[in-house]
């Protein structure tokens, strides 16, 4: 019975996920097609271009821009089902390929930032929950400042201090671990601050629970109590915030990659927006939705398995 209901739940979630993806594709398709500006011109007529009309006609025909809008939409959905996100106007290669090319550095950055954020948050929360008041005040003060600092200000500050002034870390590029440090912290610190706040509150509540008092009375040491008992209970809260974390990582990537001149999907998005590369922007938006849906699904399944009580809720 339990497996059945679990499967049903997963099936339902999958269906909802597909629905979300279809909606995201449709909405972004509509939105971007209403934008002003001639995409064919933008494709060939960058700065200092001098194209002829025959060239422009060829471009419009190649990309189906001369077709009625519903034909373009249906074609788009059809291709989407086959995993084809279309052809980039600007780069003249499949969007899926462009994303795949740029994905590595962004994943590297996002994973590194997520790890740093979670480790920092857990560490700080464990160390500061239910301590002397000034410790809590200090750490929540720092967290507050970090959550209030816009990503681009934080990144710039790190750049000035560690790169421009002291030359401790490289300014730009995708090469090597050293060039990953500043972007990672730029992206991770605000997320860590939010997670730490939530986690500490949660930890403090757990630490007041009767079972903790019982455990303590059996003579368990403080560190062990915190790590073995309290942390496990409070981590669920972090897991529920995975949606927020993904959103921050993907959104923050646009700014972080721009600031640090890093290759990646964020740069691709910004380029697509400024050049009205319709398939590119659509592709990235749909891709972001896929990531969101998949990660949420995994998280959902994950803690349904861990904590079966949630199934019946």
């Amino acid at each position: 019975m339990r497996t059945g209901s679990l499967l049903r739940r997963i099936g339902f979630r999958l269906l909802a996920g597909v629905g979300v993806l279809w909606g995201a594709a449709t909405l972004s398709f509509i939105a971007l097609h209403v934008t002003a500006g001639d995409a064919a011109l933008a494709t060939v007529a960058g700065q200092g271009a001098n194209p002829t009309e025959a060239v422009l006609r060829a471009v419009r025909h190649d990309y189906g821009l001369d077709q009625p809008i519903y034909v373009q939409y249906l074609r788009y959905l059809g291709r989407l089902v086959r995993g084809d996100l279309g052809q980039s106007y600007q780069q003249r290669i499949p969007v899926a390929k462009a994303i795949a090319e740029q994905l590595g550095p962004t994943v590297q950055l996002a994973v590194a930032a997520a790890l740093v954020a979670v480790l920092l948050a857990v560490g700080v929360a464990l160390l500061t929950a239910r301590r002397r008041p000034w410790i809590g005040s200090l750490s929540s003060g720092v967290e507050l400042v970090l959550t209030s600092t816009p990503t681009f200000v934080l990144g710039l500050l790190l750049l000035i201090v560690f790169s421009f002034k002291t030359r401790l870390l490289p300014v730009s590029g995708n090469q090597g671990l050293a060039s990953l440090i500043l972007p990672t912290f730029t992206l991770a610190l605000p997320i860590a601050a939010v997670l730490a706040q939530v986690l500490r509150t949660e930890l403090e509540e757990v630490l007041e629970q009767p079972f903790i008092v019982t455990v303590r009375s059996r003579g368990m040491r403080d560190v062990a109590v915190r790590v073995r008992h309290a942390l496990r209970h409070s981590l669920v809260q972090v897991v529920t915030m995975s949606g927020y974390v993904i959103g921050s990582l993907l959104g923050g990537a646009v700014i972080t990659e721009t600031l640090f001149v890093r290759q990646g999907v964020g740069q691709l998005m910004l380029n697509g927006v400024t050049n009205k590369d319709i398939p590119m922007v659509l592709g990235i938006v749909v891709f972001a939705s896929v990531v969101y849906v998949v990660v949420n699904l995994l998280v959902d399944i994950g803690y349904t398995v861990i904590d079966p009580r949630l199934v019946t809720r």
Partner: peptide, 15 residues
């Protein structure tokens, strides 16, 4: 749900 599946900044960029 659909709109929430796209990060805020990307959504703003689309707008």
């Amino acid at each position: 749900d659909v709109v929430l599946s796209v990060p805020e900044l990307l959504l703003a960029l689309v707008v």
